[in-house]
Design a protein around this nucleic acid. Structure first.
Lengths: 186, 186
DNA sequence: CTTATTATATTCAAATTTGAATAGGGTGGC
DNA sequence: GCCACCCTATTCAAATTTGAATATAATAAG
């Protein structure tokens, strides 16, 4: 879904070939917010082309590079784009990473080991938090506000996660994960 | 991955058939933290059985119900479980929902429409935030702390999202998503 | 009393994602 | 000057996920 939205969005700026789309997505750090896999991108492009949301404009042949097929968005494609965006905003999805599941079930295994990897993980997230904030600051005068929101959101979410992990870590070291009846210390 | 972790975790409590696993997952609200699809569950069970991380204990036949195959975790399976948990804690994945991508690209479409669906969405998330807090409070004396952390984490994450959406909404109403050069008002 | 929904348990085809293979040219380091 | 890795651009098989179909009984709703 995000893949289709990204493709249709970028093709509204200019006609492109799939590989070029990936380059721009990386440039704008879309790859930080969604899974960008070449296979899926080409699949989505084919799908969109089949149903005429986009169409091939020309194919550039070259003897030392693979052919490039340049696509353009159609009127039908623009309509789909709007529909997908609105639909995506409406739809309430529960997004929770696998990490949360893993930690919920970690009480079945050796707590010393959990403690150790959790420490490493916390250190990593601390870096992520700092990095995300830095990215935000550095882009203030460089990108439109829509992109700024994205960057600041990234920062806030990692901060939330960090706080959560630290609280959990305190309970792991105290071997309290299996305790009952007391509220968390917040 | 989460699917496998959940299966191996639950089979450590007792031998079960796949359908029973889904019931327990719902009871414990694991289905709020991961995607629980029957097809994927059965696929994962088959996969684990093929590689001998779990094994069939018995098959209960009945003439008015489909056969049930009850599985048990093996020693190899317990080792895998520990490994998967630790691996999952270590692995840093960027998890960002499609909503963020959609909103980042929403500047290409009619802002009146975006404004409208965004309002609805904000109202929904407000409910989610309240609900999540309530779930946390009501479970304080009912579940182990590992589960409490999960519930409080859910609350904090939705709160973070709500704040983010409200900030974005302010920019949408002010038609500022395409502006450059000024930091967000935080 | 009849119709609709929910619970039981699993299977399957179709859609999608993943991860690697391809293959030649450029670039940086030692 | 050579080796290793990165860039360009796409394709493909294999793994996985999705969503619906199956079939019957029990419960609920009207």
């Amino acid at each position: 879904m995000s893949m289709k939205i990204a493709i249709l969005g970028l093709l509204q700026e200019k006609d492109m070939h799939p590989y070029e789309i990936t380059l721009i997505m990386k440039e704008r750090m879309y790859d930080q917010m969604m899974k960008l896999q070449m296979g899926s991108l080409y699949y989505a492009v084919d799908k969109l082309a089949q149903e005429e949301y986009i169409e091939a404009v020309e194919t550039i042949r070259s003897n030392d590079r693979p052919d490039k097929t340049i696509y353009r968005i159609t009127g039908k494609g623009k309509a789909l784009f709007e529909q997908l965006i609105l639909q995506q905003i409406k739809k309430v999805e529960l997004v929770f990473h696998p990490l949360y599941m893993a930690l919920a079930l970690s009480r079945y295994i050796d707590q010393d080991k959990v403690e150790k990897v959790l420490e490493e993980r916390i250190r990593e997230i601390e870096h992520q938090v700092n990095y995300a904030y830095q990215v935000y600051e550095e882009h203030i005068s460089v990108v439109p506000r829509s992109a700024l929101h994205l960057m600041y959101g990234r920062y806030e979410h990692s901060l939330t996660e960090l706080k959560w992990l630290k609280r959990l870590y305190a309970d792991v070291t105290a071997r309290k994960l299996n305790d009952f009846g007391t509220p968390l210390s917040l």
